[in-house]
Amino acid sequence: MAAIRKVHRRGRFKCNQLRRIAELMDVRSIEPELRSLMVAGLEGDAAAHKMLLEKLSVQLRGYFKAQLGRYGRDPVEAEDLVQEVLIAVHTRRHTYDRSQLLTPWVYAIARYKFSDYLRRSKISRTDVPIEDAEALTAYNDSAQVESNLDLDKLLAGISPKTRQAIQYVKLEGLSVSEAAARSGMSESAVKVAVHRGLKALATMITKKEPR
């Protein structure tokens, strides 16, 4: 019996090891691409930024579904977390150090947001287990569902100035100077309003009742 268990354990070990190798290979293939997209996005390349967010959303969705399952939560909530992290990746992208790897940076944000989510939803777990950053890129899930965020409701809940800035710059795609000219705000005020609006978006996504 003990011998069988031993063999079994060894078999599982080998299986884990193989999976880890596969994960590592996956990371190696995906990290340089994600990083170059991120760096291009930081220089103002919108198409690269969009592609980065799309690729990350697929990874994050799989990651959060697995995590939620592990904590016995409904995987439907994964979409909220995906969106919250995407907004954080966008609004906090100045905290990415270009000389470092990108995947651990995204993973740290995802892990932070997940433990914050657990705390908010009062789960009796104090901390999220630390895995390797590679864990993030091991997941793939492109099946989207709707998140709890209702954009119209959100826009109704923020200040008129912020709403106008988001409307012009983010929904209608006007440039910042065009939006500034049309709304009579200064360019820097438009930028600040957009930034603030996106952060408000992030806080409202995962909170069930909008304020």
């Binding site: 996005g41 103002g44 919108a46 969009k50 967010l53 100045h94 930028k191």
Partner: peptide
């Protein structure tokens, strides 16, 4: 998020 991306 990717409309009008500002350089950082």
């Amino acid at each position: 998020l990717s409309t009008n991306v500002e350089p950082v």
